[in-house]
Structures are given as C-alpha cells and as structure tokens.
Simulated scan of single mutants.
Amino acid sequence: MADLELRHLRYLIAVAETGSITRAAQRLLLTQPALSRALRALERTVGAPLLVRGSHATTLTATGSELLMDAYDLVERSRLALTRARGTETLTVTAPTCDVLTVAAASRAFEEKHPHVQVDIEPHDWLAPEVLRAGAAHVSILRDSFDRHGLDVEPFAAEPRMVLLSTDHPLGGRDRLTLADLRDETFTYWPGMSDAEAAHWTGADVDGHPRRQSLRIGSATDVIAAVALGRAVVYAHGSTLPEQLPGLRALPVEDLSPSHLEIGTSARNAGPTAKLFVEHMLGWSARPA
C-alpha cells in the first residue's frame, strides 16, 4: 500500500477549511489543476473518495472527515519530530513586504533571547492569512480587513494613512484632500482582495461609496510605478511611503481610516514558541522609541 504524503494531508486540511478547491489552491499557492491532481492521488492512496465536489462548494465524505482529524495530528507531529531532530527550532513568520525590516529587527532580538530558535521571515501581502491557516507559517503580521476565520489575532500598532499621487495630478497642488475629492479616482488592487479589503484600500469603508475604477497590480513596486505614471492613486500608511518621493506627493485625507497592524497565529494549533514570539512582538511594539 502506498504511503501517505504529508503535503497531501496539508492539502486536505486546506480544502476542508476553505470549503473550495479554488480557495484552497490560492491559500497553498498552487494552481487548481495541480491541487486537484494531488487530491485524486490522495484518494487513490486511501482507496476511498474523500471529497464531494459540488458546483459551489467542496465538502468531505465521512472517510475524508475521519482522515482530517488524523491529518491535523500527523502534520503537527512531523513538525515536532523535525524540531527535536534538528536541535534548533525554525519559526516561520510572514509579514507584509513594507513591514519586513521592522519584523526582522524584532526577530533578531527574539533570537538573542531564545538561541535555540531561528526565525524565518517570508514576505507575503494579501495571501498571508491563507498561508497561516494552511500551516505553512507559525505567525503572521497582518494588515487591515483580512479574514480572521481560524486565527487568533492581537492588535499590534496603528498608523494614519495618506493619499499618494503624482505631482502632476490635478489634485497634487492641494494641501489637504477629502474622500469626496478622490471618489472617482482609479485605485490599485491586488488579485484575491476581499470586498472588505477593497473597501478599506479605496476609502469606501468610511463613506460607503464603492469605487468603480481599479488597476490590477502584483507588488509594492507596481503600486509606486502606477502612481508615478499617473495611472492610479493609492492610500498608503507611513511605513509604505518611501523616504524620497521624486515625482510623487503624499497628502492627508480627511476622515480616512487608519492602517491597523496585527499579529496572528492559528487558533487550532499555535505552539508555545509562536506564542512566545507574539508576546515578544507585543512588547517590542510598546518599547520606548
């Protein structure tokens, strides 16, 4: 009989938690066909159907539900076994690209206090909650309007946002703007944004007017390029804004909601080291400047 593969068990967990092969593939950073092939391979290994694939949702069969309980246990046991064998524990932390430097400084201080732990920081933006729920990270630094399902989240910091636009923009000569001034502007968006995230990053979370124009981007660099070329504007928090802004201008916006930075762990299986790291980060945020 073929052996079970841990990655296949992680895939089963992702499908069970998202209720969708499409959403599970996004969480796992896989293509949908690749995930479907892997799930069929798992079903062949088990020798029984594990999933009921519907047009709107994917659910587990009775056999799949039984295997799911063991999957959580086996995945966690494998992680602990590797930790004991290596003698050094690796803690994987995801963070938004704009916050990596801050998290790196705090992580170095954590490693000095806990020399048996190595902190591995992975930049992730909109998919960070999915990576955390999938078990591919132990801790995630998260920003603004993300899906909290299956996560334990602690407030970490907050900072005001401003609008970043080209100095050639018709509104670039103003000293201060309102949400109404920017209502019909083109805003950037990331693939996979939820409605709540899109509302926050366009100001619709405050004034209730959905934005009709958007420009798809794939990285923070794309955002700056889109603004510099006059193709879009963006609401940015302070740590996102570059120190030098040639051709760009940041302006305050009345009533714009702030950006909230939070720290999350899995509600199901956060280990003691992850909890220690969360305590460390909360203390780090509260330290004197």
Score class of each variant (00 low, 15 high):
Ala48Asn: 08
Leu80Asn: 10
Ala85Cys: 06
Leu51Ser: 00
Arg77Val: 02
Asp73Ala: 13
Leu67Ser: 00
Ala85Phe: 09
Leu68Ile: 05
Arg84Gln: 08
Tyr72Glu: 03
Arg37Ile: 15
Ala62Arg: 13
Thr59Asn: 09
Ser36Gly: 14
Ala71His: 07
Ala41Ile: 03
His56Phe: 13
Thr45Cys: 11
Val52Tyr: 09
Tyr72Ile: 02
Arg79Leu: 05
Glu66Arg: 08
Arg53Ile: 04
Leu51Lys: 00
Thr83Tyr: 05
Met69Gly: 15
Ala38Phe: 03
Arg79Val: 02
Leu80Pro: 05
Arg84Lys: 06
Leu35His: 05
Arg44Gly: 01
Leu68His: 07
Ala81Leu: 14
Arg44Tyr: 05
Leu74Gly: 04
Ala81Asp: 13
Ala41Arg: 06
Glu66Ser: 11
Thr45Asn: 10
Glu66Asp: 14
Asp73Phe: 10
Thr58Arg: 00
Leu68Asp: 05
Arg37Lys: 15
Val52Lys: 06
Leu51His: 07
Arg84Glu: 10
Glu66Val: 12
Ala38Tyr: 07
Ala62Tyr: 13
Ala62Gly: 15
Thr58Cys: 00
Thr59Leu: 03
Gly47Trp: 08
Gly54His: 01
Ala41Met: 05
Asp70Leu: 11
Asp70Gln: 14
Ala62His: 15
Leu68Pro: 09
Ala48Gln: 14
Ser65Tyr: 09
Gly64Ala: 03
Gly64Leu: 01
Gly54Leu: 00
Ala62Leu: 15
Leu50Arg: 07
Thr63Asn: 15
